[in-house]
Design a protein around this nucleic acid. Structure first.
Lengths: 242, 242
DNA sequence: GCAAAATGTGACGAATCGTCACATAATGAC
DNA sequence: GTCATTATGTGACGATTCGTCACATTTTGC
């Protein structure tokens, strides 16, 4: 038996409806079309009702971001089930992140926008906290993998680097690559039409992660193992998320 | 003799006044106070006049971003004059970036916001192009350093990694670290009050760059040289920018 | 069946964007 | 110097969107 009353359940359901609608608007018509009125109109509720759930627009953004992070966590957890060594699993995490941002560029835009003070100041503390916790859970998946690699002897962190810091560094690298990739692509296109096309972001990510992980001395090193060859297996493994 | 007429000069001067004012508003009162009306009022021009210069709000953002990138380029060029090996110079670039973002967090917020499609779609193509070019010039500084390191034999890129890609990877790492650092700090604070304080972002950046550059096999490696000891020298060198 | 509490509404004021018809000033031809 | 033409400057305006609130409706508990 459910511990919630019908009304409470309805409330939660409605909240979900608002979020689903908001996300759909964002995906199909972009950030410009993302207005409170539009959400209200499309769900056939009044705007006041939307505000019963969310303190402001940025609050919805944070809620969406929270959901995205949950999605990402799901993908990350699946990524860890890949058959392979720990470093391949780490690469799978990177790939999962990459696929996610490419499939839902608008969502990734939110993940970026949420980094600015402006958004964070407006959103409600509760929602912000929830988001941080989801963020933490994503990190936890990475941490568990790094921990496993250490336990298995594939990796040995330098004394002055904590597990958390290692995790943060890898995360930041992936985020930076994905956030800057679109612009980088554009610059390349403008610069030189005739030159060979830049290796796609996927290739870049493989390279850069290999370099960073080699820096960590995470075995087997890229000189000892053909990670390029793992790529198809990894992509196959993540295929179920389209 | 100036090739511009008085009016053209006045026009440019006024444009600069608008930009300076916009930046000042942003720094002192934050993004929320950043409105076209406010800029017009504070410069004692009419709003229409502002729109004679900028197609929209996002256009100003891009112009500010452009200026910030020019600033950054200046600091980067100074960073290269450090006495030391090439890798220390690269670390100085990272430090310059870090100091810049810490001194002007609002400006960095712009640099982040400008990554989202929403902003890029609204800004005028001209302004966007200008910004990309400034971005490119910053990259060029990095590239020249990497090139010098290669020429000096400190670094040898793998065959499948272009100079441009290497540059992009380093840039992305730094950007990611700096963009995510504030949130990371907050998460740490929430999680565990009693634990030792996280190494500040400066320390993290040193570590992560060391790891990545070790991955590149950029000599001298962090195991062969005490880069921790270089830090003060680097900070001193960049002191002139406060 | 009714009072109190919870929920839902949409008109409203405020803020801001970007435009435009008109005002004012500068320029240059004569 | 005058005047037509061009360039520049203005701020009222319509449109959009945010977030609020007094009131309407529904549900709940008794």
């Amino acid at each position: 038996m459910n511990t919630l009353t019908r009304r409470q359940r309805e409330f939660l359901q409605r909240e979900q409806l608002f979020l689903d609608t908001a996300r759909q608007i964002l995906r199909s018509d972009g950030a410009a079309a993302f207005t409170m009125d539009r959400i209200a109109a499309q769900t056939e509720y009044a705007k006041g009702t939307v505000y019963k759930h969310f303190s402001c627009k940025e609050d919805i953004l944070c809620a969406l971001c929270h959901e995205s992070l949950v999605q990402l966590e799901k993908r990350f957890r699946h990524a860890l089930t890949l058959e392979g060594n720990h470093r391949e699993k780490m690469m799978t995490l990177g790939t999962a992140y990459l696929l996610f941002t490419h499939h839902f560029p608008e969502e990734f835009d939110i993940l970026i926008a949420v980094r600015t003070n402006n958004v964070r100041q407006k959103a409600s503390p509760d929602r912000l906290q929830q988001m941080l916790e989801a963020d933490q859970r994503v990190h936890d998946v990475m941490q568990s993998l790094i921990g496993a690699a250490i336990a298995a002897g594939d990796l040995q962190l330098q004394a002055d680097i904590s597990l958390d810091e290692a995790c943060f560094g890898l995360w930041a690298m992936a985020f930076g690559l994905l956030a800057l990739a679109p612009v980088h692509d554009k610059m390349e296109q403008h610069d030189q039409m005739a030159s060979p096309p830049l290796p796609p972001i996927q290739q870049i990510m493989l390279h850069q992660m290999n370099l960073l992980l080699d820096g960590y001395r995470w075995h087997p090193l890229s000189t000892e193992y053909d990670y390029q060859a793992s790529l198809n297996r990894i992509l196959n493994h993540m295929d179920m998320f389209q």
